[in-house]
Amino acid sequence: MSFLNHLINGISLGSVYAIIALGYTMVYGIAKMLNFAHGDVIMVGAYVCFFASSSFGLPPILGVILAMVVCTVLGVVIERLAYKPLRQATSLAVLITAIGMSYFLQNAAQLLWTSNPKIFPTFFSFGGQTGVSLFDGGLNISYAALVTIIVCIVIMVALTLFTSKTKMGKAMRACSEDKAAAQLMGINVNTTISMTFAIGSCLAAVAGVLLCSAYPTLQPTTGSMPGIKAFTAAVFGGIGSIPGALVGGLLLGIIEILAKAYISTQLSDAIVFAVLIIVLLVKPAGLLGKMIREKV
């Protein structure tokens, strides 16, 4: 029974990673850049939701929507100000700019909201209960975990439909294949890239709220470690691929929780990264990534 408990916790954590990884993978697929500031957008989203519900007394759902709006705007503004001028620059220059942006967000958050940890409120409780208990307490599932898993599934289905059915989704896929050709077909590449950042950041806000519902301490650095792990998850599943982000995120979450439970708490991160290394050695483009053969 305890294994099942750990498995559910792992899937729930993995769902959060998957949602964050989507942001990384979509941006990488289209703009070919590692957006290191993504983890800090998560943190901003969580803070916005926290203040909306604790200071202004808004109901949780409004808080989440507000966080999504703020993060979407933030993501687009970051893209316009910091990344768009560097469209032609080397990927390393864009990487450093993204790191600068990450420092900026973290330090701005520290100035605005101090580094004292905030305790995130429990959103997911029904009738005073925070979870359901099955088999005489043998299996405890928190509502937060359930909601996280459901939200993740909804987002995955919606995003898959979006990229395959809508015009904008098709434009995104076209841009990730070949930007110049997409432009010739009448696709506005800049708008498409902005749209990608908007979707990624909007998802980051959702992920921030879900993450803080499961691990309720909120600090300016809250987003950085989940950010790195979600990035690993994106690479794990094959960066640039949306199903890959789901698979990578879920596997990473499950491995992390199981390693914590059965092997060692201190070494769980090391085990996660070791598995990543092994996977990349066997499949150098990730689990679901496309292998591109270099031609001479």
Binding site: A82, P85, L86, A89, Y103, N107
Partner: peptide, 14 residues
């Protein structure tokens, strides 16, 4: 520091 870093990257690469 962060702002200086971003501005320098923009200035040297745009």
């Amino acid at each position: 520091y962060a702002i200086v870093l971003i501005l320098v990257m923009l200035a040297t690469n745009n």
